[in-house]
Write a protein that binds this DNA or RNA. Structure first.
Lengths: 198, 198, 198, 198
DNA sequence: GATGAATGAGGCTTCATTCAT
DNA sequence: CATGAATGAAGCCTCATTCAT
């Protein structure tokens, strides 16, 4: 097994272990020793890959956030020039799909996000989504928005925020499909309402 | 200074200190000693009011959340029977206003709200909002919704979630008024779209 | 109620409370606050009677130990000149009776005796018993002992030590009467064996 | 130094430190930090071997008590079938010898033994002694006892209780040899008196 | 490189004691 | 005198991090 691949495998194992422990023990009990143990490596090894605990947490959040950002960006790019309704649906859909792909991880990471100092990372990722969404909206034919930035911000805030609520709400964890439909409706309605013909 | 008042003052000081420390140090550095110190009391005193750190966090979150929930409930009750658009605006407005009243505290408490220990409280409060919102929607004349619960959930998730994003987003903290307008628009659009005449 | 009597009543209440708490919570949870509360007085009042917690514990142990010592001394004095067997029985009987009088307190105090610095008190009390016993043995007609001190020491050590074991042994707490008979037999046999005619 | 041996050495050091602190500071001042310090390890290390303070105390008491119990059991087994006097002497002798082997430790541990947390252990050990003694007495030729259990209990209570008193009594610590002789005499006398021919 | 025992700073909590009311 | 809220030293324990093997 080549070095690179082994590294990757170890890091994946560590990430997985982290998520699992987060889910079953909670942030408070997330210790480096426990993570290492669950990942099947020694603490020493863990520290070879991540200089601090915080670095591990940062890395794992970055990993998941960037996956989501990429998915959304890609979807946005592929739907440039589409009619507003289509674009809107694509955007919302891509986001929720990306989050749902590893729903457990998403749930788990929401609980850490306030513990580590990832505000910057979150803000940066949000900006990526915001930018991608803005480009998409601007590309829609026949329509334009009075102040795209505000609209885009609100759109993305609603999608990401509502999704968080849905994931963290015990009662709704099962109804994600319904939720997606609703949010799509909401965004479509919002955008159509905010748009003016051009 | 009569006993009751002194108690109240002490608890307020502790709450304030907690918020401040949350804002300047973060959850990870929120220690009972630090809170007591900042509040100008001894740790012992803190522990006379709250049996453990968790109880303090619970109490403070409960305090702020219930204020918000009350404000929203009241607004909902006062707008029962109003046209959909009015009702929607009242609901959204009440929520964001309540949150903005003590914006710093809101920002601070978002960082604690993902804590396992208060998850139930957060869920319970969300339920209060959900119920109040549901009653309001059901009371609107001339309209009805195919599945009110889904609609209400999505509405509240979007409002609360988006507000969280707005509060936590460094870039947007100043533009809360614009944000409120936008969210109001969004919710109105969503509800009108989801409603069917009756 | 005259001052003296009120004092006495308070101190009694405090002693009782201490014993009860010892019995139901254990030494570790014996706090001055709890004692005061159970005794129906404030901590401040408790501290008016006893300068430290240790003073309280010392006083209560002293109280019970001296009761026992007095009872034994009195019994010894009243049996001076009696035949060995009678004297022996009287001694043993007096000790166990005194301990049994407030069996709960005895049990409770055994658990504190190593916590407070009462070694001197215990030694001193043991000396009182030892002396009283020695005088009694020396007074017995027709017999004498080669080295009375050794004999007396062993006698008293056996009686007091065995009684402690009996009180602390969960299984035997009910059978104290049988135990007393047995110990009486043992002591009689020992003394008769150790005695030489004169 | 192989791992096992180092572990053993560490545990021994911790045990020794505990005994020493017990002797020089008393139970009340026995803190985990102090033990670790005296043992030349860090608190963390102490907690790697013992999950809490209670576990340490339990372990150390268990260690010493089981040594004593084993010694007594062995002596009892080796003297099965011996005449009463021989059996009695062997039993008493074995117990006191075992206690004397590490007299300091014995003295120290008496101060812990009334702790609630180890009460069960003490009772259980007493039962081992009781059982071994009972078997021994039953095996003696030509004699039997009306109720062996009562006799055995009293015998063991007297031996263990009196030994405790002797160890804890400042004045007698030097005269253990005399004490042993006396206790042997006492037990022999008791048993011969309690026995009936068969 | 990998390991995991050892470290010790620092967090939470208790409780003896004081002192203003 | 009595009260009991306030104090803060000190105890227990955890866990991120290091480093000898």
């Amino acid at each position: 097994m080549p070095r690179q691949a082994r590294s990757k495998a170890t890091i994946d194992a560590i990430f997985d272990a982290t998520i699992q422990i987060l889910l079953s023990y909670g942030v408070r009990r997330l210790t480096t020793t426990r993570v290492a143990e669950r990942a099947g490596v020694s603490v020493g090894t863990l520290y070879q890959y991540f200089p601090h605990k915080e670095a591990l947490l940062y890395a794992i959040i970055e990993h998941y956030l960037s996956q989501v950002a990429e998915a959304v960006e890609e979807s946005c790019n592929q739907n440039l020039g589409q009619p507003l309704a289509v674009a809107s649906d694509a955007l919302v859909s891509a986001y929720i799909l990306a989050k749902s792909k590893d729903a457990e991880a998403s749930r788990a990471l929401y609980t850490v996000s306030s513990d580590v100092d990832v505000a910057d990372l979150v803000n940066a990722t949000f900006k990526r989504l915001h930018d991608a969404g803005g480009r998409l909206l601007r590309s829609c034919p026949h329509v334009q928005f009075e102040n795209v930035d505000e609209v885009t911000f609100t759109l993305m805030a609603a999608v990401t925020g509502a999704t968080r609520v849905a994931f963290q709400n015990d009662a709704h964890r099962e109804k994600l499909d319904d939720f997606r439909e609703q949010i799509m409706t909401m965004c479509r309605a919002f955008l159509q309402n905010a748009a003016v013909d051009r």
